[in-house]
Structures are given as structure tokens and as C-alpha cells.
């Protein structure tokens, strides 16, 4: 098992290298000059030349890339062009926020998506199934930014129950942290719940028509036992894989949701960085996100091996 994980990690390295090259190249293909974006209104030619030279932006792109790569290998991700803060500090500041949002959103998604998926599958073709599908479809189709603003207007402005936006670290004030995160996590969760529900439903349908379910029924188990013990446990595998992958995507930051609720996570960081042509920050965040995604992929695979005795034997 350990050898398997080590192998996978080793294979991930070239992937990361290619990702970083692509991002670096793409950024420089973008029109717009980071120096101009930085200079703001004080953009006379002398100032521009001075900033350009001080940031090594006057050197050829391959040299800039190698400089950056050299830094990364030695643990230096560079500094933000905009605020002068080290990129690694920025990432350390934002990553916990994004993880918290991702975990809470995933909890919402699982709490809503998996039960409705099971219920829909068990009652296939009945009005319950249609209703569940309708809810799932709406979850997928309602844009996050709209749902977010509606929730803010209803819950914060009209009812005054929760703060409209903002963020507090759970280590400083856990209660307020929860208050500020509930709405964005719910908004993000609804979209994912729909995906989870659809997959749970189809996995359950597949399992429920299997021979061993008929056998279980035949030997007189209660409906509940058949569904949960025999059905759901076998349908769980693809659902877990999917959950891990969805979680990996969440780590890239939820740009719109973070923007609406003003949550200082990865999504906001990278959007602001792109608009300001803050190359080092974009590079750092994308690299970090890619690592997160690859890790979640790996975890998904490891989990499915652990949960499935047949695959364990094949290893």
C-alpha cells in the first residue's frame, strides 16, 4: 500500500511541473502589463521602468520561470507584487479559510445529497423520486451568486439572524465563525448536493437490482436492513470517490461564493491576483490547488482500495 502511495506521489511531480509551466505561459499570454496595473495612476515612464527592473520583469520569460522554479524548490514562493507579502504567507492565511468552507459545504452536500439519493432510488418512479430529482435539478441550475444574494437579503437584512458577509477564524471566535460560514457553505453545498444525489441514486439503483439484494430480501431482512446494510454500503464506493473529487475542486476556491459573501479564501485571492497581474500569487495558488487536487485524487483511490476487499487483493 505504502509503495503504491509513494509511486503515485512520484508520478504527480511531472504533472505539477507541467501545470506550473502552463500557468506561467498563459499568464504571460494575457494582454495587460503587471507593471501598469501596479503603478496605478502614477504611471509615468520612469516609474514604470523602475518597477519593471526591480521585479525582474524586464528579463526573458524562460529566465523568469527558472527564477521562480528555483525559489519554489527552496521553499520560496516569491512575494506578491501588489502587497509585498510573501506568497507562502498569503497561502497559509487563505488555505484554512478555504478548507473550512470546503468541509462545511461538503457536510451540507452530503447531508442533503446522500439521503435524498437513497430515498429517490428506493422509491424509483414514484412521486418521491420525481420530487427529489426536481430538488436536485434546481440545486444544479440555481446560480450560486443569485441564491447567495437572496439568502443575504432574507436571512440577514429581513430576519437579522446571521451576518450578511465576512469571516472570522474558528480559533478566534468559533461561534461567529460558524455564523459567517453557514450561508456560503449552504449555497456551495446545494450545488454539490445535487451532483451527489444523482450519483447516489444511480449507484443505489445499480446495487438494488443485484442478486444478493434479492437474497437478502428473501431471507426475511427488514426493508431498512436491506437498504442500509446491503444496499447502501455497496453503493457507497462511487459516492466516496466522487465526494473526494468534489472536495478537491472545492479546494480551488469558490470564486463567486467567496466574492458574494466576502470570504477571504483562495477564490478571492486568485481573482484579485489575476486582475492585478500579480504573477507570483497566481502561480503559488494554482500550484497549491493542483497539489490539493492531486492529493484528493490519491485519497479517493486509496479509500476505494481500503473499502473494497477485492481491489485490495488486486494490489
Amino acid at each position: 500500500m505504502l509503495i503504491y502511495i509513494a509511486k503515485r506521489l512520484l508520478i504527480a511531480l511531472p504533472t505539477l511541473l507541467i501545470v506550473s509551466m502552463l500557468v506561467f505561459g498563459l499568464q504571460h499570454l494575457l494582454p495587460g502589463d503587471p507593471v501598469l496595473a501596479m503603478a496605478g495612476e502614477e504611471r509615468d515612464p520612469e516609474t514604470l521602468a523602475r518597477i519593471r527592473a526591480s521585479l525582474n520583469l524586464d528579463q526573458p520569460i524562460p529566465i523568469q520561470y527558472l527564477r521562480w522554479l528555483g525559489g519554489v524548490v527552496t521553499g520560496d514562493f516569491g512575494t506578491s507584487l501588489r502587497t509585498g507579502e510573501p506568497v507562502s504567507a498569503l497561502i497559509a492565511q487563505k488555505l484554512p479559510v478555504t478548507i473550512q468552507l470546503a468541509v462545511m459545504a461538503m457536510i451540507f452536500a452530503a447531508l442533503i445529497g446522500i439521503p435524498t439519493g437513497i430515498i429517490a432510488a428506493v422509491n424509483k418512479g414514484s412521486p418521491v423520486d420525481w420530487a427529489a430529482n426536481l430538488v436536485a435539478l434546481s440545486g444544479l441550475s440555481i446560480p450560486n451568486f443569485w441564491l447567495g444574494i437572496m439568502l443575504i437579503l432574507l436571512v440577514s437584512v429581513n430576519l437579522g439572524w446571521l451576518p450578511a458577509s465576512g469571516y472570522e477564524s474558528p480559533f478566534v471566535d468559533p461561534w461567529r465563525s460558524l455564523q459567517t460560514m453557514i450561508m456560503p457553505a449552504f449555497v456551495l453545498g446545494t450545488g454539490l448536493a445535487a451532483t451527489l444525489m444523482r450519483h447516489t441514486r444511480s449507484a443505489m439503483l445499480g446495487v438494488m437490482s443485484a442478486d444478493y439484494i434479492r437474497t437478502a430480501r428473501a431471507k426475511g431482512l427488514t426493508r431498512r436492513e436491506v437498504i442500509l446494510k446491503h444496499g447502501f454500503r455497496n453503493a457507497l464506493l462511487p459516492v466516496i470517490t466522487l465526494t473526494a473529487l468534489l472536495f478537491g475542486e472545492l479546494l480551488a476556491g469558490a470564486v463567486l461564493t467567496e466574492q458574494i459573501f466576502t470570504i477571504p479564501g483562495f477564490g478571492k485571492l486568485i481573482v484579485d491576483a489575476v486582475f492585478n497581474r500579480d504573477y507570483a500569487v497566481v502561480q503559488g495558488v494554482v500550484l497549491c490547488t493542483a497539489v490539493g487536487f492531486l492529493l484528493m485524487n490519491l485519497i479517493a483511490d486509496v479509500l476505494s482500495v481500503l473499502l473494497n476487499p477485492r481491489m485490495r487483493a488486486a494490489l
Partner: peptide
């Protein structure tokens, strides 16, 4: 940054 959210925060007393 979002003008609607900024105003919503003012209205809700945040």
C-alpha cells in the same frame, strides 16, 4: 466589492 452585499451589510446593521 459587491455593491448589493455592501448595502445589505449596512441594512442588517453589520
Amino acid at each position: 466589492p459587491d455593491t448589493t452585499v455592501r448595502l445589505a451589510n449596512l441594512r442588517s446593521g453589520e
